[in-house]
Write a protein that binds this DNA or RNA. Structure first.
Lengths: 179, 179
DNA sequence: CGCTAGGGTTAGGGTTCC
DNA sequence: TGGAACCCTAACCCTAGC
């Protein structure tokens, strides 16, 4: 693309700082239009100004490494009960982490590379479903089944097989049942 | 000012849909006032309703039923600061749950049945690696790369592509960086 | 004035480039 | 890998017109 990526010059940054000082943050269009700064910012959009200000703020004052959690519970969440009762859900949480201690011995013993239809490659399909249609609250069994059926060959008793796998993963802490 | 931006919850959306079904579009104030929906929409103005309906219509009619939603997961976040100078690791935690709101419209529509090489099917491979060689502390990038390379075709710049995906998943709370 | 329809702008998450 | 520049779009604002 013809996108050489336009780096910001110090004049532009200066103009932006002055503009914010005059109009306040959030008034990007006003700043961009202001004849006092426009000569320096003519090639920048109001959105560019906003983005640049965000970057400047981060690198400048942002020194609070901690405090990263999203929380923001400020939202009043009435959370009405009895909202359309439907099906039971499952959620997943695979957690894995590698430890620094290298352990040479392979214990997996997973059968082999035969990633055909059977084996724990079903796990992969499950995660594929969960990560592809990535719903905030997870997928119930039915949704997982239909997703997988659409793109893989599956045995006839698949649904049963799947729920077994799901339960297994949950006990292994790789999935998290959500409701 | 104290307006961190209020994202719409599914309850609110549902109430809005029901309100429109009952009063018709354009009757925003009526919907907002209706005691049947007001409990869900008390923090929204009639104008908010109108704007939201516009957004919903756009995304519904178009093509991208993209619905991300943030939703904060109360996941315990140990977050160890700068420890173990050795190698960095990654771990994963996918969490999904299905939401109760039933939506009649078929939303699967995920195009790509071509689950070939590209696309977010990489996510599936990542989870496959993590769940197959299921290490107590997760896998570092290199291990994931070699696992995947052994059983799938991958582009040459795969390692880079992978780390991008990993970062993405982490920000989505589907993976957890373990260190 | 109250309310709605639309166009305009901002906020913030996500993505790409280097 | 990480940060700076850029993109996307939900959420919010402004205003004409009824």
């Amino acid at each position: 693309m013809g996108n050489p990526k336009q780096k910001w010059t110090s004049e532009e940054e200066e103009a932006l700082r002055a503009g914010v000082a005059k109009h306040g943050t959030g008034k990007w269009k006003d700043i961009q239009r202001d004849p006092e700064f426009n000569p320096f910012l003519s090639s920048r959009s109001n959105i560019d100004l906003k983005d640049k200000w965000r970057n400047m703020s981060v690198s400048a004052g942002g020194q609070g490494p901690r405090e990263k959690s999203r929380s923001s519970k400020a939202k009043a969440n009435p959370d009405t009960p009895t909202t359309t009762p439907s099906s039971v859900q499952t959620s997943v949480a695979a957690s894995v982490a590698h430890d620094t201690a290298a352990d040479p011995n392979v214990d997996d013993s997973t059968k082999s590379l035969t990633d055909g239809k059977n084996a724990s490659s079903y796990n992969a399909m499950i995660f594929e479903a969960l990560s592809t249609l990535n719903e905030p609250n997870g997928l119930d069994t039915s949704k997982i089944v239909s997703f997988i059926e659409q793109r893989h060959e599956v045995p006839q008793n698949f649904r049963r097989l799947l729920s077994t796998r799901l339960r297994r993963l949950v006990t292994q802490d790789k999935l998290e049942k959500v409701v």
